[in-house]
Amino acid sequence: MELKSGSNLEKILRAGQFAFTGELGPPRGANDAAVREKAKFLRGVVDSVNITDNQTAMVRMSSWAASLIALQEGLEPNYQMVCRDRNRLAMQSDVLGAYALGIRNMLCLSGDHQQFGDHPRAKSVYDIDSMQLIQMVQGMRDGGKFQGGADIETPPRVFIGAAANPFADPFEWRVHRLAKKVKAGADFIQTQCIYNMDKFRRWVQQANDMGLTEKVFILAGVTPMKSIGMARYMKTKVPGMDVPDAIIKRLQGVDKKKVADEGIQIACEQIAEFKEMKGVAGVHLMAIEWEHKVPEIAERAGMLPRPQV
């Protein structure tokens, strides 16, 4: 088996195992212990952990630094990089540095607009977009060339990830945008949080029909609802999120103390279906500020123990 990066995530996926990835948000401060504390819940529970990059445009510890701390804690990071804060020079140098220090997966994203964060009047960069970032990293790795055309002495051999949101409008266009990301060089895809299963099934079916799932590993995004308030917020306030009323009704239907548990139950049912779904290669669990719950969710979803490859 020829590997592009040799990362654990790549090996799991290429071995045909159902992958399970998690997420870790770096702290709003210089405290490495905060990263280590979150990491300990994820060790041995996920195949790789996404380290977010100034998510929601709030300044946080840099994703490469938090990735290195995660690495020290025995986790395999999936280094996220957004186009909002860096130009192509900074991005390429960060990719080189990240690889040199042991980072083997990365996720290429556009990033939330700075207006949503705590520096709304910052100037955004967007020198290149997420599609071009994927292409650039793929060119660095496989072509051994910088985006400007010069040779790279030691190319960074990273496993290239990208995001997809099957629920954003127009629905008919989403699968074609996925196809563009595959063409740009994405090895794996992590989707937006899925709540509308029916729509997701249709999207994966389209991806299957177009032969995309033979070229890229799709990890279905799952975020368990912690409360009814969170579900309502996701439904009304988060752009591109599709939360059917049935989810909210189901959470409302249980005892107040059992809402979070019901949220996990829904997530587990989703994961059970994804395991059987043609075209889905794994699950990406985004337990937002709920890292300590990940072992329990993984256990209940039957994702443990993680395969060793």
Binding site: H113, Q115, R121, A122, K123, S124
Partner: peptide, 8 residues
Amino acid sequence: ANEWRNQT
């Protein structure tokens, strides 16, 4: 630092 007004 400038408060940019041309980002949207």
